[in-house]
Simulated scan of single mutants.
Amino acid sequence: MSAYGGYSKPAYGAQGGDDSGGFFAGGSQQGSQGGGGGGKSYQDESLRPVTIKQILDAEEAYAGADFKIDGSPVTQITFVGQVRNVNPQQTTITLKLDDGTGQIEVKKWIDGDRPDDALPTYEVDSQVRIWGRLKSFNKRHVGAHVIRPVSDPNEVNYHLLEAAYVHLYFTKGPLGGANGANGEGDSMFVDGGGYNDQAGGNASQANSKLSGCSAPAKKMFTFMNDTPGGNEGIHLNVITNSTGMSVRDVLTGADELLGQGLIYTTVDDETWAILEY
C-alpha cells in the first residue's frame, strides 16, 4: 500500500471530489460498487499535500485532463491557508485562501438534502485546512470536500514541510533510494508512492484523534475497524444495520471522523473506509 506525505494511498484515495463535495472524477461518478467499465480506477486516486503556488502552476494538457504537479498526476489535494475573503451563499460557500505562496478560491457546496446542515462560518485571517480536488471550470479553483479550521499553528508549519518533502520525492527521488521514485532501502517512502512513519507515530496520532471524538463516532470507527471493507469501504446501510445506530448518528459520526482525517469516502458520499496509519 503506497503512501506519501504521511497519507497512505488508498487513505484519502477517495473517488474524485467535484464541487458538490462528493468524490467524483472529471465531474462524473467513477468506480461504483461492483461496477466495471473504463474510467479512472480507485487505485489511481491519491491525496497529495501541496502549496497554493503548486496548485496555480499545475499543468493541464487539455480541458478535463488530469492535472500534474512535478510531472505526476494529481487527483485529490490537501493544503492549509489563511482566509482572506468569505462569500457565503444559500447552497455554497466560497473562500479566498492565502498560504504565503499565492491565493486561490475554494468552493464548498452545502448538502441541501440534509436539513440539519447549517452554513458554516469562517473568520477572516483564520487558518483552515482543505481536502478537495483541483478544478478549472471558467477559472482555476478548488472544489472542497472538507474544510476544517486549524487550531494548532504548528499544523501550518508541518504542512509546508510535508509539501516540500513530497515535492522533493517527485523531483529528486526518495531519501536514500537507489532508483529515484522506485528506490527502496532505508527510504521513508514505500511502494513508490511516498513516505510512511515506520516508528508507529501515525498510529498514536490516530488514537489521539479518536479519543476526542463523540460516542457515535467512536462506535462507528470501532465497527469499521473490525469489519474488513476492502477498497470500496463500508456503506451507511451496513453500519446502521450492524450497529443499531440511527442514520443521523452515522452521518454525524462520519462528518466528525472525516474532519479528523480518520476515514475517507470511497465510491459515494455514504460509503467510507478507514485511513490506515
Results as ranks from 00 to 15, higher is better:
Tyr7Gly: 04
Gly132Trp: 06
Glu155Asp: 15
Glu276Leu: 05
Gln260Glu: 14
Met220Thr: 14
Asn154His: 08
Asp19Gly: 10
Gly192Leu: 12
Ser246Met: 05
Ala14Met: 08
Gly173Gln: 11
Asp268Ser: 01
Asp268Thr: 00
Arg129Ser: 14
Val80Pro: 03
Lys218Tyr: 01
Phe221Thr: 11
Asn237Trp: 10
Leu134Asn: 07
Gly35Met: 10
Gly64Pro: 01
Arg148Asp: 09
Ala164Asn: 08
Ala206Tyr: 05
Gln15Trp: 08
Tyr42Val: 08
Arg133Trp: 06
Pro10Asn: 10
Gln82Pro: 02
Ser28Asp: 09
Val267Asn: 01
Gly5Glu: 07
Gly253Tyr: 05
Gln30Trp: 08
Pro10Glu: 09
Ser126Ala: 12
Val124Ile: 14
Gly180Glu: 11
Ile93Asn: 01
Gly102Met: 11
Thr91Leu: 06
Ser8Ala: 15
Gln205Lys: 13
Arg148Ser: 15
Ser20Cys: 08
Gly16Thr: 06
Asn154Tyr: 07
Met188Asp: 09
Lys96His: 00
Gly17Val: 10
Glu45Gln: 12
Leu161Thr: 10
Glu162Met: 14
Val156Arg: 04
Ser151His: 12
Val83Tyr: 07
Leu275Phe: 05
Gly212Ile: 03
Ile55Pro: 02
Arg114Gln: 14
Gly229Tyr: 06
Thr92Asn: 08
Ser72Ala: 15
Ile52Ala: 13
Ser208Lys: 10
Ile93Lys: 01
Val80His: 11
Gly233Arg: 06
Ala65Ile: 00
Ala58Pro: 06
Gln54Phe: 02
Ile274Pro: 02
Thr243Leu: 06
Ala203Asp: 07
Pro174Thr: 15
Pro49Gly: 03
Trp131Asn: 07
Val238His: 08
Ile234Gln: 07
Ile147Pro: 02
Pro120Asp: 10
Val142Phe: 01
Tyr4Met: 13
Lys139Gln: 12
Pro228Val: 05
Thr78Ser: 12
Ala3Tyr: 03
Asp268Lys: 03
Thr94Tyr: 00
Gln103Met: 09
Arg140Trp: 04
Glu270Ala: 01
Leu258Cys: 01
Asn157Tyr: 05
Ile77Asp: 02
Gln30Tyr: 07
Asp66Val: 01
Ala61Pro: 02
Asp99Val: 00
Gly26Arg: 10
Asp19Pro: 04
Gly31Phe: 10
Ala217Lys: 05
Thr240Gly: 03
Leu160Thr: 07
Gly13Lys: 01
Gly100Leu: 06
Gln260Tyr: 04
Thr121Ala: 14
His141Gly: 03
Asp191Leu: 10
Ile147Met: 12
Asp98Cys: 03
Ile55Lys: 02
Ile77Thr: 12
Thr271Asp: 00
Ile93Gly: 01
Gln82Ala: 06
Gly17Ile: 04
Asp117Met: 08
Asp152Lys: 09
Gly31Gln: 14
Gln76Ser: 15
Gly36His: 11
